[in-house]
């Protein structure tokens, strides 16, 4: 088992290298760079910028150098000094900008996964063991509705309901007084009292799809001979269902935690824009539109790294729950 984990960790290194190349290439793909969009913005506001100043800025940001040099400067900074570079637009080190936001994004994603599992697993098991009953049909109906409604739409509706019926503005992750305040116990409590909304909104989609998948998997497993063997032993029906077929039917969820994380992070962007949350999504979106390349690149790199780690975790989980996956020693 330990050998298996070590091997997977070693394999992560080339994966991450390729990811860093691709994330850098992606942010270089749009025509122009940060300066050209900056100049365009200044022109639009009626300000002029002279060529000497432009050249000085280019020099400062290293934008006049070839792409591979820029990549090397960026990646060596990360590897050797843990320095993610500077954000052009914000004029601050990238690391100052993103850790809080990635932390919140991860917190929301994690809570969403936990909430959707807590609801979906019992619901899916019930639906499968009571196939074609009225609750089963009802759950199918609700989960198709949940699958079919985009999360940002749900977020908008929630905002409107909050304002129209309760007179509360539920957008934003923090109350006014905490927005720019440093982290404190009060700020954390304030955030926790508001974080349930994005979690619920994001969980709807995820829960619906888990119910569907679990129901289908479990229906397959329920007819497997090993279930009959357990029944022939005289095991109580509820114990039997949870101990044997559910255990096997859950394997796909352990193996996809990694992707769920990635899907949630990108789904969260839209919801966060709608609800004006200061999570990573909106900041990444803005960095991409203004071609703030170090900020955008670092975001993509970090989120991808987290996904790779998530996949590793899910592989380890799977090997732990399913002995057939474990490699023979």
């Amino acid at each position: 088992m330990l050998q298996y984990i070590v091997r997977r960790v070693v394999l992560m290194i080339p994966t991450l290298f390729v990811i860093s190349l691709i994330s850098f290439a992606i942010i270089q793909l749009p025509p122009g760079d940060f300066l050209s969009s900056y100049v365009a913005q200044l022109r639009a506001e009626g300000d002029a910028i002279d060529a000497a100043q432009l050249a000085a800025l280019e020099e400062q940001y290293g934008l006049n150098q070839p792409v591979y040099v820029q990549y090397w400067k960026w990646i060596s900074g990360i590897l050797l000094r843990g320095d993610l570079g500077r954000s052009f637009e914000w004029g601050k080190p990238v690391s100052e900008l993103i850790w809080d936001r990635i932390g919140i994004t991860m917190l929301i994603s994690l809570l969403t996964i936990l909430l959707s599992w807590a609801i979906a697993i019992p619901a899916g098991v019930y639906a499968a063991t009571h196939q074609y009953s009225i609750p089963d049909y009802l759950m199918s109906f609700i989960s198709f509705l949940g699958l079919g409604t985009p999360s940002f739409m749900v977020a908008l509706v929630a905002l409107w309901v909050g304002l129209a019926f309760f007179g509360v503005n539920i957008s934003g992750l923090f109350s006014e007084q905490y927005i720019d305040a440093p982290w404190s116990v009060g700020k954390v409590l304030d955030m926790l009292s508001r974080i349930w909304l994005p979690v619920v909104v994001l969980a709807i989609d995820n829960t619906a799809s888990i119910i569907r998948t679990l129901r289908a998997n479990l229906l397959d497993e329920l007819n497997k001979p090993y279930v009959e063997t357990a029944r022939a032993k005289g095991v109580r029906e509820t114990v039997l269902i949870w101990k044997y077929p559910v255990r096997v039917a859950l394997n796909p969820f352990f193996s996809t935690v990694g992707w769920t994380l990635a899907a949630l992070v990108s789904g969260e962007t839209l919801v966060s824009v709608v609800l004006s949350y200061q999570t990573s999504g909106p900041l990444l979106l803005r960095a991409l539109t203004s071609q703030d390349m170090y900020l955008a690149g670092s975001f993509i790199l970090l989120l991808s790294t987290l996904t790779v780690i998530g996949t590793l975790i899910s592989d380890i989980l799977l090997a732990w729950v399913d002995p057939r996956i474990r490699l023979e020693e």
């Binding site: 001979p225 044997y244 255990r247």
Partner: peptide, 8 residues
């Protein structure tokens, strides 16, 4: 297939 694959 008559024995559970995930239990000893």
């Amino acid at each position: 297939t008559s024995l559970s694959p995930v239990h000893t």
